[in-house]
Every structure is written in C-alpha cells, then in structure tokens.
Design a protein around this nucleic acid. Sequence first.
RNA 1: CGGGGCGUAGCGCAGUUUGGUAGCGCGCACGGUUCGGGACCGUGAGGUCGGAGGUUCAAAUCCUCUCGCCCCGACCA
Length: 571
Amino acid sequence: MRYSQAFIPTVKEAPKDATMPSHVLMLRAGYARMVGAGIYELLPLGVRVLHKIERIIREEMDAAGAQELLMPTFLPAEYFKESGRWDVYGPTLLRIEDRKGGEYHLAPTHEEIVTDLVRREVRSYRQLPLNLYQIQLKYRDEPRPRAGLLRCREFIMKDAYSFDVSEDAAQQSYADMRDTYHRIFQRLGLEYRVVEADSGAIGGKQSAEFQVLAQTGEDRIVACDRCDYAANVEVAEAGRAETHESGAAEPAALEKVATPDTRSIDEVVAFFGGKAVAADTLKSLLYIAGDQLVLAVVRGDHEINEIKLARHLGVGEVLLATDGAVREATGTEIGFVGPVGFEGRIIADPDAIAVANAIAGASETPYHYRNVNYGRDFEAEVASIRQAASGDRCPACEGRLQLYRGIEGGHIFVLGTHYSEKMSATFLDEEGKSHPFVMGCYGIGVSRLIAAVIEQHHDEQGIRWPLPVAPYEVIVTPIGKEEAPLAKATEIYGALRAHGVEALLDDRNERPGVKFKDADLLGIPIRLTVGSRGLERGTLELKKRTEAASTDIPVDDAVAATMAALRELRG
RNA sequence: CGGGGCGUAGCGCAGUUUGGUAGCGCGCACGGUUCGGGACCGUGAGGUCGGAGGUUCAAAUCCUCUCGCCCCGACCA
C-alpha cells in the first residue's frame, strides 16, 4: 500500500475521553473511531489486524476439527424464550420489535440458535462429536461500556459449540479446545494465564478463562509463582490460615477502649499507633442476604469476597447493609461494629479467627475492644469468605500467590445438558435410546483482543505490534526531496511485495520527522529508511520497532536482510 | 442503577464566577521559504456554544428540563 493513498487518519492529540493506552493509540494511530458509547468503526488498519487475528483463530479451530458456520445476529425471541433467557438476561439483551409488533433481539451469544440447528439436523450418535463455530458480531447492552474496544456493546466474538454423546466425550472436547486456545493465544504474542473462573450466567459446571495480563485489565487474578495454579479472585481459594503473631500469643484480658473517629481499619491502626497493624484487627461488615442480616468478619488487611460469602450462605447475592440498617441492627455506627456480643449469624474467615488478641469494633460508638479472641469472646461459622491476596500460600503447592490484572480474552465452558434438555435437543445412541447432547461452548473476544495486544505491546511513541498481527510487516520510508530515495524505496517496496511481504510505502510528501513519528505510532514491526545520505554510501537503515538502534545494510541486501529480520521476529 | 466529571471549530482547550463583538493551539486550504525525529512566515475557510424552554433590552454565561459522553463501584468475550 502506498501511504499517500491509504486512509490512515493519525492525530497528535487523542480525544480526552480515551484513557487507556490501547484506546488512545487506536484512535491516534487511525485504527478505529467511536460512533457511540461502546460502538466503534474499525478503519482499514484496524481491519487488517482483525483479519490477522481471525485468520489465526480459523487456522487453529479448523485444525482442531471445528467447522465454521454463520448464524444470524437478528433473532426471533422464541429461542431465548425456550431456554428461559428471554427473562433471565434482563436489560443486557437488546430487544427489538418489528413492524408487526413481533418480538426480536440482537444476539448476545448463540447457544440457543446452534442447539436448535443441531436438534433439527443431528439425530444419531454417529454424527457426533460436532464442533461448530463462527466469528460474528455480538450485542450486549452493557451497563457500562468503557475502555474503547475492551468493553463494547457491539463486538466481534469467536464462539464455538461442541456436541458430544457423553460427559466423558464432552470433557475431551473441552480439553481439545483448551489446547487449541493455548496455541491461539501463543501465536497472538500474548502473555496470559488460564484461570479457574466463575461460570456466570451461561450456566455450566466447569470453565476456564484465558486472561491476558495487563495492568489495565478489569479482572483480578492470582497465580502461583511455583505451580500452574491460577484463578480469578472471584473464586480463588485463599491461602491456608496463618496465625498472625502480634507479640503475646497468650490471650490477654478483653479491654474496651474509646476510639473516636476511627471508622476505617487504617484509622483504627493509626489510633493505636505503632502497636498495631491492619493484620491485628478484625473487619466486620454487615450484609443483607435474602431476608436475614449476617455479620461477615475477615482480618483487617483482607477483603471480603462477596461471591464466596453468598455461596456459603446459599443465596444469589449479598448486599452490604446501609448505614441506617447497621444502626438499627447493632445500635452503633459503621466502623464500630464487631462480633463480640453480636446477636445473629456470624460468618468468620479462618484467617480472622486465627488472630490472637485482635482489635475489633465494640458495637458501641465510639469504642473498640482490644484482645478479642475467637472462642472466648465470640463464636462464628467459619468459612473462607475473603479474597485471595498477593503473598497468600498457594492452595495447591507450597508456592505463593501473585496478584495480576487481566483482560478476559477467552472463556471455555463445559455446559453439560443445560440447553439441550431445556430445548429437547436429543440424539439416538447405539441402542436407539434418546439422550440430550452434552455441550460445551468456547468464546474468544476477537475485537477485544486487538486492544489487549496493544495493552501489552506499546510504548510512549505508539504501538509495537507482534509480527503475526501487525497490519503491515514492513514500512519503507524514503527521506528527502531528491528523486533517488523515493525511486529506490519504491523499488525495494516492489521487491518485498514480490516476496510476499506486506509492506507500506511512505511516499507522502512529508518531512522525515512526520514520517518517523507516524511509523512509530502505527507500530509497524520493521522500518526501512532510505535517505540520500545513505544511498551515497550504498546503504539504507533497517530498524525494528522494538529496538532503539537501527542497522545500516547495503542497498542490494535490503530484501534479503528484511526477510531475515522477519524470520527472526517470527521466532 | 449509585457516586464524580465533562459537552464551545475536525482534535485539545480558554471564555461561564461578575450576562454585552466567540477566542487560542493543533489540524485543514492557498502562497512562499524549508527538508534525518511531529518546520517557519503570510493569507484564509471553518462554530445551531449538546438540545428545548424560561428570565432579560441583551444569554456560551443565570434558571428549569432534557440528551450525550467519560471516570469510579454492582455485570461480562
């Protein structure tokens, strides 16, 4: 492509609404533009990257025996009504009425539609296993779209659905997809972790997330520094309880201390000066779970995991009690609530009850107790209700857990017969008996991955594409107003293209600085600079986007040297 | 949905407190000088001040309503 004819609208200043690196850079470098909140158009460069990613996904999915199809995104309501999701999905489902008043919606995912297709067309165990996938637009009216392409209301997703004769066979399909996903994420040049996850609303028994590591990610995950244990903090088992030694391990006498203006753990710790740290305190929070009020207690430096708490209580969700509710239930202000003397259900984390001579709220404003000890001063149901934290012991080995932030790039599930049973999707086995298909589903946020790659591969100057997903592999940059550089650059550009290299020729009538800045911004992995100065010596410069220095190479070796550099970048 | 912030030229912003001629930088067009890390000079085009209603002789500015966008929290590829 000749840059002078390319539609690559770069800008110096990013719109103020963009905050994350990937968002800023996609806008500045002319890869994408916003149309509405969570709605983007991909410009030519963006589409080239998209196609690169899609191609890798298709190659690996096809190699795994999956078959591509294309399902509609505009759907009659009947399928979601059949599975029950028409009601369950809530406002996230974009509903549409046609001219006759018929109910429709835009597809947020396609379990029902494939299941319907398969139940109509597949009758026999001999047609199984079957894995069908598509790369398609998806629509979810997200409560809060954000961060550019990372969280959109319209996005591109690869979704695959497997159909098997048995649970065992489905486990095999799941394992195969897991392997396939590893290959895909590796080829994309991403640093990622596979983590245990909450199956969420899709309804499944087993699932794993492919989390792309990035400081800007929305998800928090923990991973062991020794073994391959990794999990979303939502579900991560916290490390085993460790008794926190705070001086005297012998229980001392309970003591009530006036502690005005100490609402937070930090303030309590500050009040007790050098004598206490957050791990010496107990954090007590009042939750509303269904129709009951429960007190959740964790160690002061730990965070409550509401998902775990809800699970322990056997309710869908728990709500933090309001100030008023706390006052009414305990007769005290928030900040002074504690387990001692609390009349009601108390759930305490193992690490909380292990604290000797703890500081905890006295359920009286403004007092705290000192030397609170579990068993003597309060009783509780003991359950792991805290979030895993950095430094926790790994639940699987002797290692320690590290905290990361991640972008959920993929999610694979064993669905079981959830949908096939609801939708009466069955096949006949060898004996002519009818069984529901055992299903799995496997998603990859394709458009999200464009942004995820940028989050991992950029610097102050711009994007630094890994070669496999770069929109162009090489940019040839003639410098100066003389004829020679442009002529030679054009010649090399032609030769590279003849060798199958995806090249961009910056034939614009721009000053060198502009061309260099744009080349860095766009993130093309290799730049060939052709200037009259070098030509006089018979050389040009080859520079990798990831390296600061360039290399002089003989003009006649330009193509060979470039091919070699590309091979090197491919690994 | 709760909390916070922002809507003025394509982009970034000032002007709003204290009503009175709509401004700056970048970008864009034209002319000239430049040409190895976002050049310089000159000329010029470009704005329903998010929208509606109100107050006023007069509204970007004050009042009411409304729409949109961003950020932080509960959901998800």
